[in-house]
Nucleic acid binder design. Structure first.
Lengths: 239, 239
DNA sequence: CCTTACTGAGTACACCGTTCGCAGTAATCG
DNA sequence: CGATTACTGCGAACGGTGTACTCAGTAAGG
């Protein structure tokens, strides 16, 4: 049930016999990514995809065993084309570059933040990215297991942040309202929270913190947190 | 469109006039949580919920404006009843306790890891939890904005880890196979990756690392990463 | 050249979230 | 005490969804 036979990356794109497919995986994938970026991931339905590509809905199942596999293709394609970072030799700078690249990629493709598109199926592009980031901390005297912990920890931070950063944005988008209007719907509740007196520190957050009023608060929070995480990872290094 | 009027936490549960509702929010919420825990979040449909509660599907819309609100209720209920941690006065121990509690909660309710159930709508229980964890780092000489960064960073790490830890488990569950069978479907692909020779470090991971063979690898990775993150957060403290 | 194995796709099934309208009921007001 | 008002439960229906089945058509291998 997982798929007709094995992982999609192991199935040949074109069969040995029979007529040539009228579509390519790449064609389908880029169409899906464009649709997801512009209309949201929930707009990527098999029928919508088929319409976009000018074929019947059922035809797509010649290319993909289940919709999940389409998502896998999308995720790996984006990892290949949109995740950019540099490995120059300074581990800290390199990991920072990776983190920024991963964040930027996720913000460009919000649907990448949801777990259905995780590293569930390690596509070739995804594998290349992790190979690259691992190479940035290779030769520092770390065991391979320690290297894994390091990358997984950083990855978790970035993805967790992206989740936080996108959750509000997604809530706004789904409500159909614009940012301002949505804010208005939240204000009365927040005020009631404050007036209840049961949340003194959250009250300070709302009243005193710069963050809620800073348009770049998410970016700032990310950058500050990232430096702390990198500080923490530095404590893993030998000596 | 966001909801009939305002946030659900601001709407009274029972109307001033008319017959008494035959269900309560709590009843609906606990039924939904149980269903999500046992059958997966995608099994939580309005019809299934209605059947479970012995009412018509449309009746649920007397309690909830959209399905999203039901998810909000579920998330906040779990934050209230299943997220346990202690604040004793040692900030590091307290944040560790929070992290462990948050991870345990997420593993017990995998659907909590997806962004649709994030802190999108800050329910009363969710607010109480964040109030509590903020109190653990109050009085350390940090600005309120710095306290926010600290909590958000830790939260991001834990949620990101939970996403990683659950993604495989979710993939297995959705495939309908058991763990062993699913593993078998992945092996040929992994072998091809290795044999391609393009991923030398990933090859070392597969061949040399203890992690892939360690049944507790996820817990270990979490604990190790958590200590690094806490080390990093310590570098935020004044002096 | 014929067998084999594929491709495209119409149709159908079993779901899904949500809306509408209507009958019934309880609290409030005059 | 009506009458009014505002609610409750919910059957039916609308427009979607993923996907299985089937069948005709086509290209390559032996």
């Amino acid at each position: 049930m997982s798929s007709s036979r094995g992982v999609i990356w192991d199935r040949p794109e074109r069969a040995a016999r029979g007529p040539a497919p009228s579509l390519s995986r790449e064609q389908i994938t880029t169409a899906a990514v464009t649709l997801a970026d512009t209309q949201g991931i929930e707009a990527v339905s098999m029928r919508a995809m088929a319409a976009e590509l000018g074929v019947g809905a059922a035809s797509l199942y010649r290319y993909v065993a289940r919709k999940d596999e389409l998502i896998d293709l999308m995720a790996d394609a984006v990892m290949g084309s949109d995740l950019q970072f540099e490995v120059r030799g300074d581990w800290r700078e390199d990991l920072r570059s990776f983190a920024h690249g991963l964040r930027a990629m996720t913000l460009r493709h919000p649907w990448m933040a949801v777990p259905s598109a995780g590293l569930r199926n390690l596509g070739p592009n995804t594998a290349r990215c992790y190979e690259q980031v691992l190479s940035a901390i290779d030769g520092l005297g770390l065991e391979i297991d320690e290297m894994l912990v390091m990358v997984e920890t950083l990855d978790a931070f970035v993805r967790g942040r992206a989740l936080e950063e996108l959750s509000e944005q997604e809530a706004v988008r789904r409500s159909g309202l614009d940012q301002k209007q949505w804010m208005q719907t939240q204000i009365p509740y927040i005020e009631r929270l404050i007036q209840s007196g049961r949340y003194p520190i959250l009250t300070r957050v709302v009243l005193d913190a710069r963050a809620p009023r800073d348009p770049d608060r998410l970016k700032h929070g990310f950058d500050l947190g990232l430096e702390r995480v990198l500080n923490g990872l530095a404590t893993m290094l030998p000596e």
